[in-house]
């Protein structure tokens, strides 16, 4: 399969089978991150894998709605995350990200690079038939406290991983002309 076709397969799936992802497979998937280039080769990502149902429920308790407000719409949104065998909490080590470049390291480069690592993880997962879903609408300090993260490590994105028969709805992005410019804006 061509890379572009693999990319089209990366869609958020929020319905998972009751099937675990074992440590070996999980390691294989997360290792996708380690091949991501990063500014100053800082590799500033830190990833916490959550399997414990109680901890997953606590993460659900920290979710925000699609306008970043606390309180969710419907139990449906709550339960599927607990269903996912693994929730990866992808974090940024702010110190590692900024040590070489200062603020731009943590506010720009670190975010870009961790985003790339996330995409790489999703691609490797997909190849292993593991589907994923990203959630960015959550109370970050709450999740940081839950995972006992040190002050300089902040959660960036949640990634639910699991097996699913659901085929994601394919949606085309903006046409090239909308975002691709020549020579200048």
């Amino acid at each position: 399969m061509q890379i572009i076709d693999q990319l089209k397969q990366i869609r958020c799936i929020s319905e998972f089978e009751d099937r675990d992802i074992d440590d070996a497979l999980l390691a294989k998937i997360v290792e996708g991150a380690s091949w991501t280039p990063s500014a100053a080769d800082a590799q500033p990502w830190e990833i916490v894998a959550v399997r414990d149902p109680e901890r997953k429920k606590a993460i659900v308790g920290a979710l925000l709605d699609s306008h970043l407000r606390p309180g969710l719409g419907g139990d449906e949104r709550r339960s599927w995350l607990v269903q996912a065998p693994v929730v990866l909490v992808v974090c940024l080590d702010h110190t590692r990200a900024k040590v070489r470049f200062g603020e731009i390291g943590e506010k720009v480069f670190g975010l870009q690079d961790t985003g790339a690592a996330i995409q790489n993880i999703r691609l490797v997962a997909r190849e292993q038939r593991v589907k994923s879903c990203l959630i960015r609408e959550f109370d970050r300090p709450k999740v940081a406290a839950l995972l006992e993260l040190p002050r300089h490590v902040q959660p960036l994105t949640l990634m639910a991983l699991g097996f699913s028969q659901v085929q994601a709805h394919q949606k085309a992005g903006l046409p090239l002309d909308d975002y691709f410019h020549f020579e200048r804006w």
């Binding site: 110190t95 900024k98 040590v99 070489r100 470049f101 200062g102 390291g105 300089h152």
Partner: peptide, 10 residues
């Protein structure tokens, strides 16, 4: 001078 982490950070 290149960037230095402030003392509060370290």
């Amino acid at each position: 001078p290149p960037y230095r982490l402030p003392p509060e950070d370290v």
